[in-house]
């Protein structure tokens, strides 16, 4: 247990950081990262669902029959997502309006189901929640990073504060749909470049 703790905790921050290493959950990564704030909000919402769903599924792993496990996971995840949706509408209304249909769409985010199937269904609750925390925060970090790049270069602001001065001409391309694809594609390429420089294996989808 103890020797599994640290590797599990740190794996989500580099070794399998979504959506770059683990090419899952691209849709929200593309859709809501117009600004750093949206990215962070979406990342934290997903992390919350991921921690609790991993915990719940791991607790019930010996009760759920393996034939209907995917359906059971989806029900658990959907319940948690509904809770997040209601909480966000109550406490962070402007953010919830901006994220729109992408909050309920956390249900079909492959990361959540992927971690449930790949980790929580085989491991005890505590370590599963650690895994959920690690992958969830890794996802939040990635989304904030993508959001920051797009917001700083596309609008000249960061978390809504101007950072690049008056003379900077914002590249509006980056905050629109095509910019999202190009940004993530470029980050993936840079990451591959870094992996090659370190002599690690390439991660390709």
């Amino acid at each position: 247990m103890a020797q599994k703790f640290i590797p599990t905790l740190t794996a989500g921050w580099w070794k399998r950081i979504p959506p770059f290493r683990l090419v899952l959950g691209l849709c929200p990564a593309l859709a809501v990262t117009m600004s750093a704030e949206n990215g962070l909000g979406m990342g934290l919402a997903t992390a919350f669902v991921l921690i609790l769903s991993n915990g719940a599924i791991s607790t019930l792993r010996n009760v759920i029959p393996s034939k209907v496990r995917i359906a059971s996971y989806i029900v658990i995840i959907a319940t948690l997502v509904s809770i997040v949706e209601i909480l966000m509408k109550a406490y962070f209304f402007p953010l919830a309006e901006q994220l729109g249909i992408y909050i309920p769409l956390i249900v079909v985010n492959c990361i959540v189901l992927g971690r449930a199937e790949g980790f929580a269904s085989k491991n005890p609750p505590f370590i599963s929640m650690v895994d959920g925390f690690s992958v969830g925060t890794g996802y939040a970090i990635s989304l904030t990073l993508i959001g920051s790049i797009r917001e700083i270069l596309g609008a000249g602001t960061w978390f809504g504060n101007p950072v690049l001065g008056e003379s900077f001409e914002p590249m509006a391309f980056l905050v629109t749909a095509p910019g999202a694809f190009v940004t993530i594609g470029t980050i993936l390429a840079l990451q591959n470049l870094y992996s090659r420089w370190r002599g690690e294996k390439f991660i390709q989808g």
Binding site: V23, F181, V182, I184, G185, T186, L188, A189, N192, F202, Q204, G205
Partner: peptide, 8 residues
């Protein structure tokens, strides 16, 4: 190669 160029 792979996902990266696909996204671009």
């Amino acid at each position: 190669q792979g996902t990266s160029i696909a996204l671009v």
